[in-house]
Simulated scan of single mutants.
Amino acid sequence: MLSAEHALAEADAMLALGRLEGGLSMASPATLRLFALRLLRDMLISALRQEGHGFTDQRFHAWFAGVATLSDEPARTARPPRALCEAILTELTHSSWNALAQAATRFQAALLAPSDGTGNRLAAETAYQDAGAVIAAAHDLLSRLAPSSHPLAALAQLHAAAGDHVLFAPSERAVEPMAMRPDAVGGKRLTVERLALPCPRWALELLWGAQWRKSGLLSHALPFPGLIRLDVLRANTATDFAMLEESPAILATTLRDAAQTLSASLSEADRLAHRLADSQIGQRRSSRAPALLELLAGFGPLRSGQLEGLLDVSRLGLRSMLGTLDTAGLLARTTLSGVHLYATDLSSRGAYEVQDDLASSTFSASALGEYDAAMAEIDALLTKSGVIADDSDREA
């Protein structure tokens, strides 16, 4: 029997997932393109931070553009950052969601980050193969899970399998003896504590959305950054029964937070899509300025060399497009190591703010029907699991 608190957590999680699917089903193509770009960037950043790399978002864009290192002090146990991003981009080019697959394909060539290590080609290839092997292991783990139409049951099954996996189970610090020379420190034997390797849960989060798409819970195979909880993974082998009892509620809260984060990103992409459309940049049919604006608004700051490849334009053509955005007051520019990074500046276009309340937006009858159908499916899942949703939450 579920406690009232646990039941509420499950209801919140299911409603958050339903609202995410409802938003996806009603989003315009422009909104989905912007959302895919943001999700691509966020997945790369999340994976790098899970590996132990410390950096700001601004530093990430500078590193991605090849004008700075990712961190001043690279993490000793982290996988090399460029190889990690290359492996993730390669995997996402095979996504069943076309908008994400296209974005990943385009950004493979836009990754201008410094080579990992000292330029040793063999070491770089080995690092890339290692990251690819982690993703392959995640594929194998997911393929062994029994299909489940209940999101929380599937998530619990995922954590149980990952907690028992030799690669995805959290590592512990290890103490190793180290022999010394007889003439050093009195010939005594010392011990060294080696740092635990980061748990590469990012690979499971990268692929998990495809599982829910197969189950009919999501219309697109979304990466789910932040969905895997290390404390729940550890609970699978722990003797702390209180923690084991709390795990279902923790997973429900985690799913709610992850779904709400994605919904917020989707809502922001929708606001951006409206504002970019209202900017009236590039009225000529042949103009590529709107595509440039979309790239910068979706992914973030990029340098001219990246933009030329992403848009397949010449340097002169790009200069003209940047001039168009600059004249309209939509372009921001920073300079690092003599290289310009371009970004959007929409601060002066407050008149084009779009209300994000669903009730104030205009949707077609078919879109509203799809949303109602998605919510009906969630209601069915809630009824099946014994959780009753409050109608007041539905209207929020």
Rank of each mutant, 00 (worst) to 15 (best):
F107S: 01
M26D: 03
T327W: 05
L295I: 06
A184T: 09
D130A: 15
K188Q: 07
R234N: 10
L145F: 09
D390M: 04
A113R: 14
A124S: 07
S314L: 02
T69Q: 12
L39C: 12
A389Q: 09
A104H: 03
P248S: 07
R173T: 03
R19P: 03
A332S: 14
L325K: 10
G52M: 08
R194M: 10
Q355M: 09
R144Y: 01
A264T: 14
F299D: 01
L92H: 05
L292S: 09
A138D: 14
G386A: 12
A221W: 03
N236P: 00
A169P: 02
D130S: 14
A179W: 11
D72A: 11
P177W: 09
D231W: 05
E395T: 13
A328Y: 08
P177A: 08
E353D: 15
L145P: 10
L346R: 03
G119D: 07
V166R: 13
T126D: 10
L331P: 04
A291R: 12
L341A: 02
V232L: 05
L341E: 00
L251H: 01
G226H: 02
L318S: 05
R256M: 10
G300Y: 04
P301D: 10
P114I: 06
M243N: 09
M321F: 04
A376Y: 03
P200C: 07
E294L: 08
D183C: 02
P182S: 14
L20V: 06
G119R: 11
V166D: 14
D116P: 04
S115I: 02
A146Y: 08
T239V: 06
S71Y: 05
P200V: 05
G300A: 02
L206G: 06
S361Q: 15
A83D: 11
S219W: 00
H340A: 06
G186S: 02
L122M: 07
A131L: 10
L222V: 00
